[in-house]
Simulated assay, not measured.
Amino acid sequence: MSTSEQTEIERKYDVDDEAVVPDLDGVADHPDLAGGAGPVHEVARVERSAPVHLRAVYHDTEDHLLLGSRITLRRRTGGHDEGWHLKLPASAPASASGSASSGQEMSSDAPATTGTDHSAAGATAGEPDGSTRGRREVHAPLGSEDEGVPAELLARVAEQLGDRSVAPVVVLETTRTATTLLDAEGAALAELADDVVTATVPGRDGAEPAVRRWREWEAELAPGVDGPSGDALLDAIEARLLAAGAAPSTSRSKLARGLGAESA
């Protein structure tokens, strides 16, 4: 089974049910905001996709050992990137077993991409929340549900797990409406995902499952858009999102919020 690896650079925002995604035409970074480094990115047009339904089953130990290490492991169906996803802190050493990615390729001697994520889930040890270099994301094919977690992904977290096993801990059902931000040549610069999420945590010992619901926006840079100019583009997008009623997310991740483990 082959795996691929890329860097995810995103910012998350909390929004209420009445919020409307703002017009993002003309959003651009500026050389002064980007420290005079890197290309200038400007949104020439946007494309909004039809809503899609995503179902993600997150796996962890019973006491959420992976979550405590800022690692998430899920099997997701629906959308363009369905499959197994393992998200790792950017500071974790890259494995030589990953194949070339269609996104931003990482190798054992490549520096992690710079970026910012308001979510503490992206923060690495010793860094303040909201100051990160993105997260490494490893993908594996979907396979059938009864095949279990791919061995290649479990090998990546063997040090954290030791002899512990993982099992489903929460199911997230997401209705996502994505807006792609394109430059004048039609190349993708970023994507804004408008997500309505329902999290279901199985009850223990016959208890009823816990259900939580919320809405959030995620602004994520496209592969190849990074560094100071990428940060400046996210800053420009953020200004419009905040004006539309969004607030920087206080959640570590969808997983932590779904589990009710924000203080973990």
Rank of each mutant, 00 (worst) to 15 (best):
S131V: 08
D129M: 11
E127R: 13
T124A: 15
T77I: 09
T124L: 11
A125L: 10
D81A: 10
G134V: 04
A125K: 07
G122Q: 01
R135I: 01
R75E: 02
R133S: 13
L65G: 04
G134N: 02
D32Y: 15
S108N: 01
L66K: 02
G122R: 01
A37Q: 06
S99G: 15
T61P: 04
A28D: 00
A96D: 05
A92W: 08
D109Q: 12
G79W: 10
H30N: 01
G98E: 07
D129V: 13
L67Y: 06
V57D: 01
R48D: 03
R74W: 09
H53I: 05
W84P: 08
P93L: 14
T113G: 07
L54F: 11
A121T: 00
T114F: 09
P93N: 05
R136W: 14
G126L: 09
G38M: 13
S69R: 12
H118I: 00
E127S: 11
P51I: 05
E137Q: 13
S102W: 10
G115Q: 06
E47Q: 10
L73S: 00
H41I: 04
T114P: 12
G36C: 04
H53N: 09
R135S: 08
T61L: 14
T72L: 13
K87G: 06
T113C: 15
R55G: 11
H118T: 02
A92I: 00
T114I: 05
T114A: 15
S95W: 07
S91H: 14
V46S: 12
P111N: 10
L65I: 04
A100Y: 00
A92L: 11
A112Y: 03
E47S: 15
A112F: 08
G68I: 03
A112K: 01
H139G: 03
E127L: 14
A44Y: 05
V40F: 12
S119A: 15
P93T: 02
T72S: 15
T116A: 13
S99Y: 11
R45D: 03
D63L: 11
I71S: 08
D63E: 07
H139C: 14
G115D: 08
S49N: 07
V52Q: 15
E127C: 14
R55S: 13
Y58E: 01
D63K: 10
A96Y: 01
I71C: 14
G98W: 15
L65E: 13
S108I: 06
D129P: 07
H59P: 00
V27F: 09
D129A: 14
A120Y: 02
R48H: 02
E62K: 07
S119Q: 01
D81Q: 11
E62W: 12
P128W: 05
E127F: 13
G115W: 08
P111E: 07
G115L: 10
H64G: 04
